[in-house]
Design a protein around this nucleic acid. Structure first.
Lengths: 270, 270
DNA sequence: TACCAAACTTGATAAATATCAATTTTATAC
DNA sequence: GTATAAAATTGATATTTATCAAGTTTGGTA
């Protein structure tokens, strides 16, 4: 992404010119950056025109990248914005009574964070970068009032929230009913699908989260997850070396995961 | 709820008069009926005026009551409306690959159904009445365009969806991390709280769902649930006779459930 | 390069819960 | 009201996964 930096040496006229250029460049950059983003349809609904796009562009802030283990927000922090992952990844987690943490989700490029905070006005979970991660911040108040103007934006926002509910229910099913191997298999397929939807390889990828995080997320012990990785490799379902994963037999993995047909071929971007 | 029924004997003028009366009566009835409803703030935001209320009232349809085991909607059915439970209760459930069903939720008076269907435009789960149940139907298209006019309505809609996401995450935690007794305890406390929020007793209530449904929902075997009920009774935590439950020791139950502080005193209606 | 801590893996054992089987209770229909 | 089916309970056993313990690999850093 190109960036023009204004210096103290510039004249006012120069600065104005540069700012105008910057605007144009940014608008272009947004289009490119958001192409594979789950806000794609939100940012660039089919019918959106230049003026609307600019309106949206005006409310989106691009934050400095987070380093590994840095927090995007903490538990209990007041809710101000929805966040979109531009690159990298994060985990969200909540504290439990016994001082442990419960990992509630992983967030890959193009995915949203913060939707669960609208209700109470504060974040029920914390978000921590798993690697160097860059983020778009969308101040919720602005998004809400802009949605008031742009029906397609309101619709897209509701769709995304609905999808979040739907996905959570899938996970509940996983946690409630499935064996350890079904859980891990479903997890890997889910990551694979999400990479695919963003235009990355669905058969070969790096997991940015630790075995511990995976285990926590899936409601299993680390040791169990580790054993399952080993078993999957022995059975020729995957190749695994540390964080690098290659899916070798997606079909059998699907069977093990006991996946619904509805999730098999989810080619929709969101 | 008062109801004036037009008969064939009435003159046109009489009918017109009655219809006008009915409108007035209905507006009043809505206020009363929605008072304890999770759409309360949605239907009657503080600042709402008569005209707005009428607009909302105009889009809400009241369906004939469902009998026990009747479906409100089926899996895969095209999504048209959000539903609100007026009285009675329902369960939602999805089919799983192995022909089983997974219960994804129970819906008590004042609660919503259908929010998970917005994303894909069709219902990912089915909804079945657990007892005689009456329902408000809110056509989504109308709700969406009305939200476009009424910012408070849009806001409330987003809040409710966010709450749904938040609640699902709580349940995920339950399913992933907790023991059988923690799950059942949390379940009973959740039902208790929801009754309380609707103005019913929180210490004594009837469960409309079977042990099987509870077990399914909590990711346990029926036998385990049954044993836990027995144990809770032996330990003096509850009194249980079939579907009738009395909470005897909420504090210990909370400890067993390992509940977060955040959920303890959730006095908000939604 | 070598060291250290963290992450991961592997094995043995224990605990929780599912499954199977039998019985009792309750609900529904005739 | 009785017959029959469905739901719920209880006990015995099997299975899965957690826990405990030990060792290995990896990545960061002095």
């Amino acid at each position: 992404m190109q960036q023009i930096t204004a210096t103290e040496l510039q004249t006012k006229a120069q600065r104005t010119k540069i700012r105008q250029n910057k605007k144009v460049l940014d608008l272009h950059a947004v289009k490119v950056a958001c192409k594979e983003c789950s806000l794609h349809q939100l940012c660039l609904p089919r019918s959106i025109n230049g003026a609307d796009l600019e309106k949206l562009d005006n409310i989106i802030e691009r934050k400095r990248p987070l380093k590994r283990n840095e927090h995007l927000f903490q538990v209990g922090e007041s809710f101000q914005s929805i966040y979109v992952v531009r690159s990298g990844s994060l985990k969200t987690y909540s504290p439990t009574v016994d001082g442990q943490e419960q990992v509630t989700g992983f967030h890959l490029p193009g995915e949203l964070l913060g939707l669960d905070a609208i209700g109470k006005g504060k974040h029920p979970c914390a978000a921590k970068a798993l690697e160097t991660t860059s983020i778009c911040e969308v101040p919720f108040e602005n998004l809400e009032s802009l949605s008031q103007e742009l029906p397609t934006l309101q619709h897209q926002l509701l769709r995304l929230m609905s999808k979040e509910i739907f996905d959570d229910q899938e996970l509940m099913l996983l946690l409630g009913k499935k064996t350890a191997e079904a859980r891990l298999s479903a997890f890997l397929l889910s990551i694979s699908l999400r990479f695919k939807q963003r235009g990355f390889s669905s058969i070969e990828f790096y997991l940015s989260m630790s075995r511990n995080d995976i285990a926590n997320y899936l409601g299993l012990a680390v040791e169990t997850v580790s054993r399952m990785f080993t078993r999957f490799q022995e059975d020729g379902l995957i190749e695994v070396e540390r964080k690098h994963i290659v899916i070798k037999n997606r079909e059998v993995m699907r069977q093990i995961a006991g996946m619904n047909e509805c999730c098999e071929d989810d080619t929709q971007v969101n």
